[in-house]
Design a protein around this nucleic acid. Structure first.
Lengths: 252, 252
DNA sequence: CGAGTAGTTGACGATTGTCAAGATGGGTGG
DNA sequence: CCACCCATCTTGACAATCGTCAACTACTCG
């Protein structure tokens, strides 16, 4: 009963126009009027707890989802029982785009911590986008952006060393936290080492060793999930892949 | 002058409704009436020759493109001069979707052989899709499919061995050639070993050795670009990653 | 407080990349 | 038509990165 109260409270109070994520999220670039219309179709349910699935591979597709707080892991189960982690998603990020294709989720999404989401029923979004050119354009852009991000990831997995992969990973979180008004150099990672390794195509042990090594080299301080980046420029050097990282160290 | 004749001939003669690729391409699932309307905005230019760029990273984005004959490689130049091959595209496949995001191509596309394409001006496609729900839906589906394909590729690069990667690569072409009415077991690859290796995240030498090994194991016959798949089921076993490939061999 | 999971560290080995040399083939010009 | 050249491909030897196995530690949660 308490929870029912909370839900209805949220339904009244929370709206895109008041949401701090509006500049990162679907409403990005829409006029206030258009945002209002979009808002009408959005559903806000109760939060998920750590380990809850938002959806599973094979589920019928109804809604896209935007994380509003917390974080989510998407992954696709692969034939031999294992899984491939496809992404970690922070507030403002849209998930479920892969399911449009044949009206069925191809991957699963699970909350890494207590997580709230907005659900956007896709059929309604589609109808709305047909009469709102700005929304249609925004949808095309978001889908295209997703493709662009995936191709960056392909380069990461195809060409980069373990070191470059982890540095890229950390800087990605750094930038995304910064965008969201949090510290770019001091944050908590909500996923396990195992999940990081899986995502980056590395063994857990490699990830662990790299964290230790980065710490030894004063690039960062790490204690479990708490990460403090101490030398962001040098991490960027590492991402570039050239041997410039070492020379940059001696610079300082 | 000969080419001008050919072009005008094509402009009159070639149309989606007559095109054998219609079931693979944008018109897939549209009514004949809708196909007609789509056809009006499509431009068909003269063919590209091997090595010609369809577009380059940084070019302003105007049009999506569908390959109608030949084949195309897409790649993104990465900082240190190298490149990441993002895909090889056959007739009926749509490229340029990554450029919608900020009206600018993020990767380059180059013809691997003599190649013809349909150009679809995106702004017109967007307008048309706003008044043609079926086309809008088709666009969402195609964008979503692209995302799905990219995530499969992420699994390939993140989790699979060299052997599994090459087998997956070969079967992908086998299936796609089959879909297009060609032989699933006897075909020419239009790209070099180097490009295959780059795409699969492997060194050229590894690709070469694997071709030799697959041939030694009677999985295929290969001579330069000409590939004949001799044991497709066993190639599928290899893709699965389990050790079943070996046992499957002793079965036969 | 105890048990189980997650993380760390070390030793070792396998897969794959790198370097180098040689083979093959297609295309061009004499 | 032949010879030559250059790019592509193949093959071998070796090295390095990273994965696997195993033991141990440190949290977390009931």
């Amino acid at each position: 009963m308490t929870s029912r109260k909370v839900v209805s409270f949220e339904n009244i109070k929370v709206a895109c126009k008041n949401c701090s994520l509006a500049t990162l999220c679907l409403p990005m670039g829409l006029t206030p009027d258009d945002v209002e219309r979009l808002d009408c179709i959005i559903k806000r349910g109760r939060p998920y707890h750590r380990g809850d699935h938002l959806y599973r591979g094979g589920d019928k597709f109804h809604s896209l989802r935007v994380i509003t707080s917390g974080s989510v892991k998407t992954y696709s189960p692969n034939e031999d029982g294992g899984e491939q982690v496809l992404g970690f998603h922070l507030p403002g990020e849209l998930i479920g785009l892969d399911a449009i294709q044949d009206d069925c989720h191809t991957c699963s999404a699970i909350a890494l911590e207590t997580t709230a989401v907005c659900e956007i029923p896709f059929s309604q979004l589609e109808s709305l986008s047909a009469i709102m050119p700005s929304l249609q354009h925004q949808m095309y852009r978001l889908l295209s952006r997703e493709i662009g991000q995936d191709t960056e990831m392909l380069t990461l997995l195809g060409k980069k060393s373990a070191e470059e992969r982890l540095a890229t990973f950390l800087l990605s979180f750094s930038e995304r936290f910064k965008q969201r008004g949090f510290s770019a150099s001091d944050f908590f990672l909500s996923m396990s080492r195992h999940e990081i390794g899986n995502y980056l195509g590395l063994a857990v042990e490699t990830v662990s060793r790299l964290f230790t090594r980065f710490q030894d080299e004063n690039l960062l301080r790490v204690e479990r999930k708490h990460v403090q980046l101490l030398d962001i420029p040098r991490l960027y050097d590492i991402v570039q892949g050239s041997d410039s990282a070492k020379s940059s160290q001696s610079r300082g």
